[in-house]
């Protein structure tokens, strides 16, 4: 049998996951409205323009993190409903490719969602930003997306076969992605210029995001097969 390598498997798995999402439109019809509602709820709860402008970065990333759980759960639901994930393992398919493919699909969905959330958040909270600030925010979004995607898919695989996985995932992932929330928030605040912060103050936080993504990307590649088998 002429099986594909890691890259080929990753590509087909990513296309399959994106096709399933496009068919069901769960991100567009459910996750996006949920995330937007969370941000509107924050606006009502805080009820102060000054506070909202200062906390806008953190609020956007909190909404993003909540949305990550929904996207990852949806991604695995399609794989475990009829035992497809186990079949992939049983068929000797390259599980590193499966990890990369699922991560890629989750990241694409997450990045597009973030683009909308950032625009909604900045309009809703009346945030102004310079051109270089937008540049930093874009890099921050890429770094955070990589980290959230790798961690989400790795831990999603860990509990794919478990009962109560909907509640288990946030419980396991929230503490792990705390550095992403912190670093992305600080970088975004620097991009906006909250409390006198400058763009230069944000780059170390952006660096943390990419280091985090690198660690979990590598960790996921090395351990995904065992994690899914467990």
């Amino acid at each position: 049998m002429n099986s594909l390598g890691t890259g080929g498997v990753a590509w087909h798995v990513a296309m399959k996951d994106l096709r399933i999402e496009w068919r069901g439109r769960v991100v567009i019809n459910q996750v996006l409205p949920f995330a937007a509602l969370v941000m509107v709820a924050f606006a009502f709860a805080l009820d102060s323009d000054a506070v909202l402008q200062r906390t806008a970065g953190g609020l956007v990333w909190l909404a993003t993190m909540f949305s990550t759980f929904l996207i990852v759960q949806r991604s695995y639901a399609a794989d475990v409903d009829d035992g497809a994930l186990e079949s992939l393992r049983a068929a000797g398919i390259d599980m590193q490719g499966v990890f990369l493919g699922k991560s890629l699909a989750v990241m694409v969905e997450l990045f597009l969602l973030q683009c909308v959330l950032v625009l909604v958040g900045f309009v809703l909270y009346d945030v102004q930003m310079s051109l270089s600030g937008w540049g930093m925010l874009l890099v921050t979004m890429v770094g955070a997306t990589l980290g959230l995607g790798f961690v989400g898919v790795l831990y999603g695989g860990l509990i794919a076969g478990a009962g109560y996985r909907e509640t288990l995932l946030p419980l396991l992932v929230l503490p792990v992605v705390a550095p992403v929330l912190l670093a992305a928030t600080r970088a975004t605040e620097s991009a906006i210029g909250v409390s006198g912060l400058t763009i230069a103050d944000g780059w170390p936080w952006v660096g943390i995001l990419f280091v985090f993504a690198g660690i979990f990307g590598l960790g996921g590649l090395l351990s995904f097969d065992s994690v899914v088998e467990g």
């Binding site: 399959k16 096709r19 399933i20 068919r23 069901g24 399609a78 794989d79 409903d81 009829d82 035992g83 497809a84 186990e86 079949s87 992939l88 049983a90």
Partner: peptide
């Protein structure tokens, strides 16, 4: 081919 079919139900 186990008791489940290993298919993607949305495809």
């Amino acid at each position: 081919l186990g008791q489940r079919n290993g298919l993607f139900l949305d495809l």
